[in-house]
């Protein structure tokens, strides 16, 4: 457990900023864990891009159909951590 890789909200924020983009009116630094992606200016295609980038970075595939269920940053963070735990077991 000591070398557990966990995926945090900050990791997500960094990928959102660097690769998918953020509009001027959106403050990613705020408490966005349960904010819906549409409110963050992310449509389904942007969420797809976001999750496929994360998948490439941590080497797992995200099924396209799952993207509909990833509606908030929390759901993405939880999903990624589940996959990381899965990969280690």
């Amino acid at each position: 457990m000591s070398q557990t890789t966990t995926f945090t909200l900050d990791d997500l924020r960094e990928i959102m900023r660097a690769a998918v983009g953020v509009d001027d009116g959106v403050d990613l630094g705020a408490d966005i864990l349960d904010t819906g992606f549409p409110e963050l200016g992310y449509d389904s295609l942007a969420v797809l891009e976001l999750t496929s980038l994360i998948g490439r970075r941590y080497d797992f595939e995200v099924p396209d159909e799952l993207v509909e269920r990833l509606t908030t940053p929390r759901s993405v963070v939880d999903y990624v951590n589940d996959r990381l735990v899965e990969a280690r077991s």
């Binding site: 690769a19 998918v20 983009g21 953020v22 509009d23 001027d24 200016g41 992310y42 295609l45 942007a46 891009e49």
Partner: peptide
């Protein structure tokens, strides 16, 4: 260009 539009 708005930040969200640039990468797409």
């Amino acid at each position: 260009v708005p930040g969200r539009v640039i990468p797409q």
